[in-house]
Design a protein around this nucleic acid. Structure first.
Length: 584
RNA sequence: GGGCGCAUAGUGUAGUGGAUAUCACGCUGGCCUUCUAAGCCGGCAACCGGGGUUCGAAUCCCCGUGUGCCCGCCA
């Protein structure tokens, strides 16, 4: 709790001085308690016991006594089991919030940040595994913005090379009938009629078919090599052809993401760095590195054995024997370019890119370019194994969203509350998208999990609808109060009446700042997910115990607390990409 | 063969070297004449194994075991 920490810091300093303790960064002693019902912040005195050669229980008692001499009733200080426990007086907190208009993140150093996420090859619709990247990345964008940072959400478009080359070749050389025949022979499902007009679902079939027939077919391989080479040389005609092949797919993919509330500020094409010459410049510069080496056929690499890379190959190739660049080389140029746009870079990458990313970091260091922060996430598996667009072993995001909407609609029709049909559809869409996002976000990025329909579609108490529901309740109360015609009255200090539920809610609200900061500094949205569940739970408790309207009379203080919660729930929902409905 | 992740109730998960290990599903017992019961209250149940560091380890180190990812002049 930042507000409390700020308050107790000088007092603790004084108390320690009286104890004869001169500790640098003594604020590091202040910790969050394990159990928040005990206190808001604490100092474990075990490390001090070593210095002072005294019983920690005794030390905690003495420090508490000293602190009590210096502090007032805004805080409560008690010693217990070798801990000095600090609790904020809820009246003091209420006063801060409602009379002093305390602002979150006032003294935070705001930054310009570029977050590159998703950047999936535009060769087919999003499956659940690929979408984890977009959902994580978008949430990091939102969390950073909530904190006050300026963020560019960036999609790096692979518009050249093998993947799109295969796609482009397929569309030009394989007929519809042939595609269907090939896929049928290889046990790949028919196109779901629901997506028969969605180009990402349509065109991926060409990609899949081409990958099947190009095996053991030298003629196709030669044709592919030809156009891929041309694309890597920046051949305008070929790049245009590639672009025409993948753009409809990319549009379809982005349509799917927008259903989940995910949007981008800018798209950057990989070929840009070939065309502007920066890749060539980088390849030259890398030759000056002490790690530089050359293969027999003229291919160039950095030797990374001394840089902590091991395995079958420790070489990082950045130029082929024929002089062309590789994906990773272009990535180096891309990073150089990105640093012109922001003072902090974050990349969201699948765990399969761990080695690649390490190689890029070392190479960037050799070029005196700062490496980015990287967030790795583990894959989502299917019970049958890894998801693969090429093999058609996937759960499409479009299907998942559709199913989730169906379930939400069904639940809505079972509710007692009366809602119009159009409204129902809107609610179902919001619930579906929010629930899907949340169920992926709440799991720590580095942990893999197996996709199960029941889990992905869960609307249980640790899901987005739970949070949305608390928010909707607070909106409903606000509506009712407004209908009763409350004038904008100022709260008097004497009206502040605290009970356990209000106290708990106020304390939880004041943890909003560090909840966001922790998620942002560690690039882990799951932390903030759990905070929002706590906030919702605290609001639900308050809702049960603290009536706001009684016989058409309004309890002004309770109303203010509810309103502040409503705004905070709304804000937190946006930070996660959950849609805060006013009724559901 | 080598490297890098991960391992917590029956299941899924949280956890910054510190107090009685979080939350949910599940199983179980209650609460709608009451601001939305997609809610609230109670009970059951867990730190992969073995060493080490430390006053103190789920957390740090080492050795195992299991599991995932990677080791291409692909992206």
């Amino acid at each position: 709790m930042k507000v409390l920490k700020k308050k107790i810091k000088p007092i603790i300093g004084k108390a320690l001085q009286h104890y004869g303790l001169e500790i640098e960064n003594y604020e590091d002693l202040i910790q969050d308690p394990r159990d928040r019902s005990v206190c808001d912040l604490c100092i474990p005195c075990f490390s001090l016991a070593k210095v002072l050669k005294e019983n920690p229980v005794k030390i905690a008692e003495n420090i508490s006594k000293k602190i009590n001499e210096f502090s007032n009733e805004d805080i409560e200080v008690k010693s217990l089991n070798g801990y000095v426990n600090f609790s904020s007086n809820p009246k003091w907190l209420a006063n801060k919030l409602f009379l002093e208009n305390y602002e979150f993140f006032e003294n935070v150093d705001k930054k310009n940040i570029l977050i590159e996420h998703t950047s999936a090859n535009p060769n087919g619709p999003f499956h659940v595994g690929r979408a984890r990247n977009a959902i994580l990345g978008d949430c990091l964008v939102r969390l950073n913005r909530d904190l006050g940072n300026e963020v560019i959400a960036e999609y790096y478009v692979d518009d050249m090379g093998k993947q799109v080359g295969i796609l482009s070749w397929a569309i030009e050389n394989i007929s519809v009938d042939e595609v269907e025949r090939i896929l049928k022979n290889n046990q790949i499902d028919d196109l779901n009629p629901m997506w028969k007009n969605k180009e990402d679902h349509i065109r991926v079939r060409w990609y899949q078919a081409a990958n099947i027939i190009r095996k053991d077919n030298q003629k196709i391989e030669n044709e592919l090599t030809d156009i891929i080479n041309k694309s890597e040389e920046g051949d305008e005609e070929v790049l245009t052809k590639f672009n025409n092949a993948f753009q409809p797919i990319l549009d379809g993919m982005l349509e799917t993401l927008s259903k989940l509330g995910i949007n981008y500020d800018s798209f950057t094409n990989e070929s840009q760095f070939i065309i502007d010459g920066s890749v060539n410049k980088i390849m030259k510069d890398l030759e000056n590195s002490e790690l530089y080496g050359e293969a027999e056929n003229g291919a160039k690499y950095l030797e990374l054995a001394e840089k902590g890379v091991s395995g079958k190959s420790t070489k990082f190739f950045f130029r082929r024997g024929d002089g062309s660049s590789l994906y990773a080389t272009r990535d180096l140029a891309y990073h150089q370019w990105k640093w012109k746009k922001a003072e902090k870079l974050i990349n969201v990458l699948g765990e399969d890119h761990r080695l690649q990313s390490k190689q890029v970091s070392v190479a960037l260091n050799e070029l005196k370019i700062k490496p980015p922060d990287v967030v790795f996430y583990a894959f989502i598996k299917l019970p049958e194994g890894k998801m693969s667009t090429r093999k058609g072993n996937v759960v499409f995001m479009d299907d998942l969203i559709f199913e989730a909407e169906e379930i939400a609609l069904k639940l809505l029709s079972e509710r007692k509350i009366k809602i119009e049909e159009i409204e129902k559809l809107k609610i179902a869409k919001a619930v579906a998208s929010s629930a899907i996002r949340f169920n992926i976000l709440k799991v720590s990025p580095e942990k893999g999990f197996t996709f199960k329909w029941d889990d992905a579609l869960s609307f249980d108490s640790d899901s987005a609808p739970f949070i949305m529901y608390s928010h909707a309740r607070s909106c409903s109360i606000n509506e009712k109060v407004k209908r009763l015609g409350l004038k904008d009255e100022l709260l008097e200090l004497s009206e502040i009446e605290i009970n356990n539920s209000i106290s708990k809610l106020l304390r939880t609200m004041f943890r909003y700042e560090e909840a966001i900061e922790k998620s942002v500094s560690e690039n882990k949205p799951n932390h903030f997910c759990y905070y929002m569940l706590e906030l919702s739970t605290a609001y639900n408790l308050f809702y049960r115990d603290c009536p706001i309207i009684n016989d058409s009379k309004i309890n002004l203080f309770n109303y203010k607390v509810s309103e502040y919660s409503r705004k905070l729930l709304f804000r937190g929902c946006n930070a996660l990409g959950i849609i805060p409905l006013e009724s559901m």
